[in-house]
């Protein structure tokens, strides 16, 4: 059963849904970041499974690119969290409204 692509696709989709639920439901900005990592991981798993299915190395190279983009995202996202936490003393994503218009409260 693990020899068919459907097992891997099922795992990737369940993991993607887990990450999506985390992004939608949670308010802690760290856990939103980790849920985004879960989403990226699910997509990487899908790429690697398809690379094995079509016996092509290109999909594995794309998976490496996704990992590199995740690393860049980690650097920017985490330094943003540090700056926002210094100003707001909170990890609640609903308190980060610096970029919103002033008259919308």
């Amino acid at each position: 059963m693990a020899n068919s692509i459907l097992a891997y696709v099922t795992l990737a989709m369940i993991l993607f849904s887990t990450g999506l639920v985390g992004v939608i439901v949670r308010k802690n900005i760290f856990i939103i970041y980790m849920s985004i990592e879960l989403l990226l991981n699910a997509i990487i798993l899908l790429f690697v499974a398809l690379a094995r299915y079509y016996e092509s190395m290109d999909a594995q190279v794309i998976a490496l690119f996704v990992i590199a983009v995740a690393a860049a995202e980690a650097a920017v996202f985490l330094s943003l969290i540090v700056v926002l936490y210094r100003h707001k003393k909170s990890l609640n994503c609903e308190s980060f409204t610096i970029l919103a218009q002033k008259d919308i409260k």
């Binding site: 097992a7 795992l11 369940i14 993991l15 887990t18 990450g19 639920v21 985390g22 439901v25 949670r26 856990i31 980790m34 849920s35 879960l38």
Partner: peptide
């Protein structure tokens, strides 16, 4: 797969 999903559910 069980470890992956348990880790994911624990994460969120």
């Amino acid at each position: 797969a069980i470890f992956t999903l348990a880790g994911g559910i624990g994460t969120i």
